[in-house]
Each structure stands twice: as C-alpha cells, then as structure tokens.
Design a protein around this nucleic acid. Structure first.
Lengths: 332, 332
DNA sequence: GTGAGGAACTAGCGCGCGCAAGTAACGTTT
DNA sequence: AAACGTTACTTGCGCGCGCTAGTTCCTCAC
C-alpha cells in the first residue's frame, strides 16, 4: 500500500507518513486539542496535507475511540412541520454543527413497528419538544442513552406559557361575546396541547368573570363540526375559540354548509396563523406565534448536557399576536 | 475490571468470558453469520447471556470494523409532510429495519449553513425522492458516498407518470368546459413538480383537441390569485385546474371575495385531496393520489445498492382518482 | 550551574467489533 | 487405512481514531 488509490479512504496515518510526523500530532492539529502545543508551521503543513489528500474523519472510529457519537436526536411529535418549526430546527442544527454535533430529527410513527432511531444510532442525547410519551423515556434509557431532555424525572416545571388561548378569549369578550365555546381537536396526536390550550382558555374566561367554557373535541368533518355547532348554539354560544386553524376551518365550513351566515350568526377564531387561515372565505381570525430563538435554546440545552457547559438562560419568550380577520365580528 | 459495573457497557467479550467461549463465536451467533455452523446449545447460551447482561452492539465499533455505517439517508424536498409521505417513510423504515439498516430523513434547509448530514453521518447510501439539486450530488460524492439514488449520471428515465392533471382536464372537459387554465404555484420549492403537472395538463388538453392552456404561477394571496382570475376570465376561461389544493383554495377564496359565485362563474379543481379540500366552502373538487408501496420500493432500491441484491420490480403504480365536490359544475 | 517549566512533539494502548485463516474431532467415502 | 469433508469452534489482526504518558530540547529564574 505504498500508493494511495482513489478507492481507499485517507487516514490520519497517511498524513503523518507523508509529513514524517506522528499520527498523534495529526490528530491534535485536526481536533485543535486543548492542552497541546503545536507549532504554527506544523499545524499549517498538517491542514494543507489533509486538504490535499482529501482527508475525512472516520466518524465511526472517532465515536468508538471517544465513546461519543456526537449525535443529538430530536424527537418530534407527529405535528405538521410548519415554517416556524423548520426554522427552529435549522437554528438548532447550526448551533450544534458549530460545536461539532449532528442534529437528527425523528418522528416516531404512531403505529410503526420499526426499531426506534435511538436504538439504532446511540445518540449522545435525546431531546423532545414535548414531554416524553409513556414508555418512551424507558425505551430510550434501555437503549443506553442517559441524557434525556426534558428530564423525565424532573418535577413538572413550567410549560410554555401558552398565551394564545388567552388572547382568543379576551378578543371575543372585547367584541362583546359572553357565551364562548372552546373547540378542541379529536386528533390523539395533539391531545396534550389541546388540553393545555383548553385550560388556558378557561383560565382567561375565569379571569374575565365568565363560567367555564363548554368544550368538545371535534374531527375535521362536517358531521362532527356540525354536531358541535348545533349543541353550542342551542346553549346560546355566540363565539368559538378553536384549538387551531384546521379546527376553525372545519367549523366555519360546516357552519356555512348548514346555512349559517358567519360571523353574524357565529364568530370563530383559530390559532397558529397558517396559510389556510387567509385563504378561507371568510378569512379566519387567528393567533400568530413567533418562536424565534427556540432552536438555539434547545441546542444550548443539548450542549449543556453533553459537554458540562452551563445551562442556557431561560428559554425564549413565545410571542403571540392576535390576527383579526373576517370570521369574527362584534356581538349583535 | 473483574466485575461488570452498571456504568460500563457490556461487550461481546463479556459474554464470551462469562460462557467460556471465544468472542468470535459470540459474534457469529449475534449476527447469525452465514457460513458458520454453531450448535443450537451454544447459540442459545449466547443469546440468553446477551439478554441477561443487557448486551447492546456498539454500532461505532461495528461500522469501523465492517466499513459500513448501515445508515440510509433519505433526502426530502422541502414539501409538506402529508399523511401519504409519512406512511411511505414508515414503510421504507420498516423494510430497512428488517435488513438491519437505519433510515434517516433529512430536509436540507434552503438557506441553511449547517454542514449537510451526509457529511456528518457517512451513510452507506443517499436517496432522494426527486432528482438531486444542482451541486448536491457533487457534495454527497465529496463526502465519500458512492451510492446515490437516483443515479445522477443515469439517463433521465421515466418520471412518475403524473396522471392527476390528465384527470383534472378530462373531468373539466366532461363537464363541458372548453376554456381551461392551469394554475401553478410560485413556490420555488416545488417548481419542478409544477412544471411537470403543467405539462401533463397540456398533454391532456392536446389529446382532447384543446389549445395549450393559459397558465400562471400564483402566490397564495388574494392579490396574486385575483389577478390571475381577472386575466383568465377576460380571456373566456370558465374552469381552472390547479397545481394543488392550496392553490385551488387561494383561487376560490379570492374569487369569493371578488364577488364571484362558484362554481357557477368559475369551476376550480385542486390536486392531492388534502384535509383543507373538504373543509373549504365550497368543498373543493380534487385528485387523490395513493402512494402505497412506494416506501417498500425505495427500500428495495437502497438494499440493492448496498447489498448487491437484485433490483426491486418496477416501482408501484401511483393510483390517482377524481374526487368530485362542489367547486366544479357543468358549464352554463 | 542547576532545576523547573514549557514547547513540541512521540509511542503506543485501547475502544469493540468483523471476519479470514486456522484447529481438532468426527464421520463418511474411496 | 487414508483421505476428505463437515462440524464447531478458536486465534488474532485490522479498522481509524482519542488521548495518556512520555521524551527531548530550550529557556528562564534562582
């Protein structure tokens, strides 16, 4: 093997041999290893030769020798991947990239039978944007992962301060509505978030002197949405705060097909300001959510777990804003 | 190290030592290695002891020793992740899992600066559901990956036979429409697919004796959709075949806000049968696409590339079906 | 002059696995 | 009886890296 062929990978030993120095020196240069002093001349020679020979670190060798895969696995719920979430992922990916880690996103299939990625990849840390599902943390631990974020054993801390439903209810009250319903989603994938938003909507109602809001979880069908509308209107409801824009759209569509005139007969406000909200006729009032900075925060959490770095400052503030459109109107 | 502590991983050597056999034998059992004959008694002892000790293969060691990461990277375009695509991914994941591979999905961020995952993971094969973007194949090759699917150097073969637009046009013609426009999407992420569907719609028009369809790519805004509607109606267009349901919804919403009565004044048909299509008022006619089997096909392609398995049979037939709803009506 | 510390490297083991080449015993065939 | 093939294992090298412990030389302070 006196000549490097184009089919065998270049190793640090090849660089060392080529320059007449030790392989360890090559490694210290390539990793900029703290605590080692390498002359500028040698460092330059190594970096130039690595580039000339087309050296690529063998990540399996590195992982084996160091005991770390440098993979951060981000478990995503089976939610729509919207623009905000995509940006968050890229932010996190970039921050971790700078620290030498690979961010991999993974959405476990709800009824899938494939072995979960945390078993196949042996990541250094597994993060989730929502609390781990029942049994999930145990499965991850059984796969040898010791760093889970959020920590399943930590006391249930403050959740993201979902202020959107508060804004929904306040806006409807400001329009004069006093009998308001909360429409959740029957999709089991988002049950926790639905419950959270329902609770926040009720918090706001209480603070504004209203009784607890009547509430149902609906399927995105005319039948389901129509039933809920019938029940609520019979109870005198004049406005609906919907879990998200899809639920709002299902309600508005069903209401129109039932012969209602919206928003005269019924006001409906959605959440999340998806593109659908501005295409629907009438255009849907909604709540927009700005999650800038969340990705960097998550990356900071991951790095603090694997590298004994300090915890990042408190998470970013989610900014919500009301987007009034034609699906809501003052009462009467 | 005479006693295994709970903090050190269990290795094949531990099993071997415990049973008084060689580590190679342990490996042959755990991998069910072809060409090796191991007694049933020994195999059982090894498997039991591995389970008892909590053995987990060290994937970095395996990758280093075998020269293969057993990772298949699936590059996804920045498209919405709909139900069909999710199912395809799970199918592929399951098929690859059974062969001992990990499927990782990766959507490169359009303006991201993070190092691409094919550099960080050194996958055995990189697959894409669309032709590789300019420069992408080169970047993947530079990262040491030699197996790319589709092969960037292969002659441009048959694309998926997009029959949806044909169905759209045929349906509108069957309703009596003779002046039909094609509405594309201005979203650069889907430019190729828009062009393909436009061409297929024109193929159908030609085959039905119609002239080439007037066509614009619209943003999902009232202004953009409204402009297109104005121009087309002025040219006598009575029906629109839209690239997808979002485009159709933007047109319908804008048309309604312009004071049109749909579908009396204008018929619109979408594509992909998303949930939005059945919530909108009027409910949107559309084309449903059934992609069952595509995931398994992709997995078969990957396995044929890395394991010298035979190529899978021809890809699954995408079944499209017309879903007539209230956004389309006979002319006049 | 001596000793300590720093610069600039080196030698080499270990990480945990895959697997080629090998060994010993036994059974079958010539 | 000898040769061959099969069964059921074993020995041990290599994969490519991280990094500890070490060496040699030089400089500076006392």
């Amino acid at each position: 093997m006196s000549q490097t062929t184009s089919t065998r990978r270049v190793t640090a030993a090849d660089i060392a041999r080529s320059l007449g120095i030790s392989r360890a020196t090559v490694g210290f240069v390539l990793n900029d290893t703290p605590g080692q002093t390498i002359s500028e001349a040698t460092r330059t020679r190594v970096l130039d030769e690595a580039k000339r020979l087309g050296y690529r670190t063998n990540i399996a060798a590195r992982a084996l020798a160091s005991g770390r895969s440098r993979i951060v696995l981000l478990v995503l719920p089976d939610w729509p991947l919207d623009f905000n979430l995509r940006r968050n992922i890229e932010e996190a990916s970039l921050a971790l990239d700078e620290a030498g880690y690979a961010l991999i996103t993974y959405t476990p299939h709800p009824t899938g039978h494939s072995r979960p990625l945390w078993e196949k990849l042996q990541p250094d840390v597994v993060m989730s944007m929502t609390p781990f599902a029942p049994g999930q943390a145990e499965s991850i631990r059984a796969a040898g992962v010791t760093r889970l974020i959020p920590d399943p054993e930590a006391p249930v801390g403050e959740e993201y301060p979902e202020e959107g439903p508060v804004l929904q209810v306040q806006y409807l009250v400001d329009l004069g509505h006093r009998s308001i319903a909360f429409a959740g989603s029957a999709d089991p994938r988002v049950a926790d978030l639905v419950a959270l938003r329902r609770r926040r909507a009720n918090d706001a109602a209480l603070a504004l002197g209203l009784p607890p809001l009547p509430s149902s979880d609906i399927q995105l069908t005319d039948a389901s949405a129509g039933d809920a509308i019938d029940r609520w209107r019979e109870a005198g409801v004049t406005a609906i705060a919907a879990y998200n824009d899809d639920v709002a759209a299902a309600l508005v569509g069903a209401g129109l097909r039932m012969g209602l005139t919206l928003p005269r007969d019924l006001s409906v406000i959605g959440h999340d300001d998806t593109p659908l909200a501005s295409m629907f006729e009438p255009r849907l009032s909604t709540i927009s959510v700005n999650t800038v900075g969340l990705g960097r925060y998550l990356a900071g959490l991951a790095l603090s777990a694997v590298e004994n770095r300090p915890l990042p400052p408190a998470g970013p503030e989610l900014r919500v804003a009301l987007v009034p459109r034609a699906s809501t109107a003052p009462l009467g």
